[in-house]
Amino acid sequence: MKIIETLPNISEGRNSELIRQIRDLSDNYNRIWFISCKSDEYFNRSFISVAGDCEEIEDFLYKLTAICIEKIDMNNHTGYHPRIGAIDVIPIVPVVGITFEEANNLVERLAKKISESFSLPIYLYEKSAKKEERKNINNIRKGEFEFLEKKMKLPEWKPDFGPDIPHPTAGATIMGVRDPLITLDFHLNNSDRWLVEQIKQELLMILPANIFLERKFNGKFNMSVNAKEGEISLTILYNEVTRVINHFGCELERVTLSSPIMGSTFLKSFRNLAEKLDGEIITIEEKILANSEVRKIRKDQI
């Protein structure tokens, strides 16, 4: 079986019923595994991770898009994360037995189907980008949903698929094949936003990473650090972030993994950090196999 991971980011982090509906959707497939979902009320955004068979993932993403277009109105959306649409970005990551070309064919096939079915503009990014300036997602998001209509009037921002105007409620969607991300959450024992922002700015100057801040219910901050696996090792990322946090005299409560790690080779280089991290260390491949065994047992018991 050819396996891919998809990590759709949707512009809704406060509606638990919508997240439950998406999770229930994934349960309708025999060869799809729901890996994780992280919803952020401050960003008003949910980060979903699903892996499985290519054909079933393609159908799942099409139906997820339909649900989000129905349930999310970007005209009423507020949140502290850049976004241009209800289904803001759909990354595709090859996992097992699939080439870049095969994954990219899936992206283009799905982009065409979604754009035609829902009149939704699609921009291709990262490895699927047809223009150099669209490889970086931040270039596509510049101006966000509020200025998307004006931006799309420029010839250089004509979408790769779909109409030349935003969907009236869903905006536009970004899709593409990309490398796996390293994601670590640093839980800070500090409620001083000014200090935490200084740490963030220092890290942005020295690391090839995206950094997001989340104020927790107790007032303390969580710092989520995302970097491409091919651009920095997990060890260096961990060491540099903890060094800067300590330099600013900020106490670090713990570091956690927000989602499973992909790749057994990557896991081997990661083992030396095992004692410093909370949570179970598991690869996506192991997660899929474990869930498969659970499903098999359940079916045998019916």
Rank of each mutant, 00 (worst) to 15 (best):
E12I: 05
Q21E: 14
Y29P: 04
R31H: 13
F34K: 01
S46Y: 04
D53S: 12
E58R: 15
K63T: 09
I69V: 05
I84R: 01
G85I: 08
V89R: 08
V93Y: 11
F100R: 13
L106F: 03
E108D: 06
R109E: 05
A111R: 02
K112H: 07
L124Y: 01
K127C: 05
K131M: 13
K135N: 09
N139P: 12
N139R: 05
G143L: 10
F147R: 08
L148K: 06
E156I: 14
P159F: 08
P163M: 02
P168I: 14
P168T: 12
T173E: 04
V177L: 03
L184G: 01
D185R: 07
H187A: 10
S191N: 09
W194F: 13
E202L: 10
P208F: 11
A209L: 12
N218Q: 01
K220Q: 10
F221H: 00
N222I: 03
A227M: 04
K228T: 12
G230Q: 13
I236F: 13
N239M: 13
V244L: 11
F248Y: 15
F248C: 09
L257F: 07
S259N: 11
P260Q: 08
G263P: 02
F266Q: 03
E275T: 14
E275N: 15
E275P: 09
D300G: 13
